[in-house]
Each structure stands twice: as C-alpha cells, then as structure tokens.
C-alpha cells in the first residue's frame, strides 16, 4: 500500500503551523510591524506558481488566456517581494540601541 503524497504535504503543513506558532510567539512585540511586512514579502513566494503559469504558453504564443493571469500575478507578487523586503530592511535599520558611551 502506498501513501498518498498529499499526506506528506499535509504533514509539512501541520508541522509548519506549529513551527510558526512557536517562532512567532518569540518575536518581540516591538518588531510586530516588521513581522507583518516580512510575512507579506515571504508569502509572495506564490510567485513560483505565477512563473509556472506565465511560462505555460508555447513559443508561438507567449500570451494566452492562462499565461496572462500568470504574468499579472508575477508583477503583483514582485511588487510585494521587493516592496516587502525593502521596507522591512528600512524599518529594521532604524532600531538602534542606546549609545552607552554617551555619558
């Protein structure tokens, strides 16, 4: 008897929820805004699906009804990836510790 591959994906999914649960609880509250922007950026890994969809057309017709949605999704996800990571980087660069040598 063979196990359906779906079960393995489901295992990954469930275990990842638990990992997410513990990892996110350990995030310091002062970084909750960067947490949201970075989760935004990483959830745009959906771009891999968009790329597959975009490249689904053949060489004669790059654009067909299916691949156009792929290309649209690619640009939306790209906005998010670049925007999300960069704005997170910009925010995190602002968090500074007190300068001890000041006094």
């Amino acid at each position: 008897m063979e196990i359906d591959p779906l079960i393995f994906r489901l295992s990954i999914f469930i275990l990842s929820i638990f990992i997410g649960y513990y990892v996110v609880w350990s995030v310091t509250p002062s970084l909750h805004t960067p947490l949201m922007s970075v989760t935004n950026a990483i959830s745009s890994v959906i771009i891999v699906g968009a790329i597959i969809a975009g490249l689904s057309g053949n060489s004669d017709s790059v654009f067909n009804s299916s691949s156009i949605f792929g290309f649209l999704a690619i640009s939306l996800a790209a906005i998010n990836i670049f925007g999300g990571f960069l704005v997170t980087q910009r925010m995190l660069a602002m968090y500074k510790k007190k300068k001890k040598d000041k006094k």
Binding site: R9, I12, F13, G20, T39, I42, S43, V48, G49
Partner: peptide, 14 residues
C-alpha cells in the same frame, strides 16, 4: 510546492 506550503502555514499562524 513545499516552500509555498511552509510559508503559507507560517504566515497564517503568524
């Protein structure tokens, strides 16, 4: 796609 599944679960629980 496991990258997408893992990320989705992380973001969802976050």
């Amino acid at each position: 796609n496991s990258a997408l599944i893992i990320t989705g679960a992380l973001v969802g629980s976050s």
